[in-house]
Design a protein around this nucleic acid. Sequence first.
DNA 1: ACTTGACCTGACACCAACTCACAGGTTGTA
DNA 2: TACAACCTGTGAGTTGGTGTCAGGTCAAGT
Lengths: 138, 138
Amino acid sequence: MTAAVLAKHADVPLFTVRYYTRIGLLRPSRDLRNGYKIYKQSDKERLQFISAAKDLGFTLAEIEDILDHAAHNKTPCPMVREIVEKRIEENKAKISELKRLQKRLENAATAWKTMKNSTPDGNSVCRLIESISQNRER
Amino acid sequence: MTAAVLAKHADVPLFTVRYYTRIGLLRPSRDLRNGYKIYKQSDKERLQFISAAKDLGFTLAEIEDILDHAAHNKTPCPMVREIVEKRIEENKAKISELKRLQKRLENAATAWKTMKNSTPDGNSVCRLIESISQNRER
DNA sequence: ACTTGACCTGACACCAACTCACAGGTTGTA
DNA sequence: TACAACCTGTGAGTTGGTGTCAGGTCAAGT
């Protein structure tokens, strides 16, 4: 199948198929008559594996590693477990950071309810934002 | 002051000062004797404003807009309020998406506790990941 | 006076994971 | 045979930096 057909079958944007192919994650053979790329059933499965791993937060580099391991008949599973544990920790940190940001945003919105718009002058661009940064410094 | 001094004063990495200068967010004058960039007190305040806005999740493009508005003596505050409201919504979505991911990761880690490592074969790369994607398809 | 080391400059490459634009070749249908 | 719709490789743009390079400048120590 061509890239477009594979993309439709695997429910992945065509540009993504082309991108994965360009970086070597997919390696289609060629139609010698016209130079078109030909993807096999196994490429579709490979692509679906990539999608599944990406949904779990694996990076493409990690996925490539996993696929390479598998290609040499070495089990990638310990690596997979390790990455997931690491990702869980990273994700926890990211979530709490976003929550902190969300609180700052909501505090700002609330505090700004009673503030008037200021016209910028030499000392101030927008007192809304500056009032928050002063809070942070205290 | 030079870029390095400004960076230290404003507690921002030197590379960031250079980057902001390169993209035009900071516009230092020049020391004609040696071509060095000279930052004024107002540049320091501008940089601190940028930092404060970035802490609230503003993008550099938005900050540039705000600064441009202010430079024309138009109050940027309505824009600022709008962006913050939008960012609060986006952030909420991002947080819940990350939480969903976290759940998938934790479910995977738990489910995998009892699973053995599989050796890759023609049908499977890593049954751990494939078991999850099957769950999602059901 | 000279050397060393720390600083400065612009231009460029790199990161992730795409997304898109370009120019040209091929295929299928009317 | 005309034309739309597909295919190709390549290169650029995205975000917010981080870093490297070669070469110029400056201040301090010997």
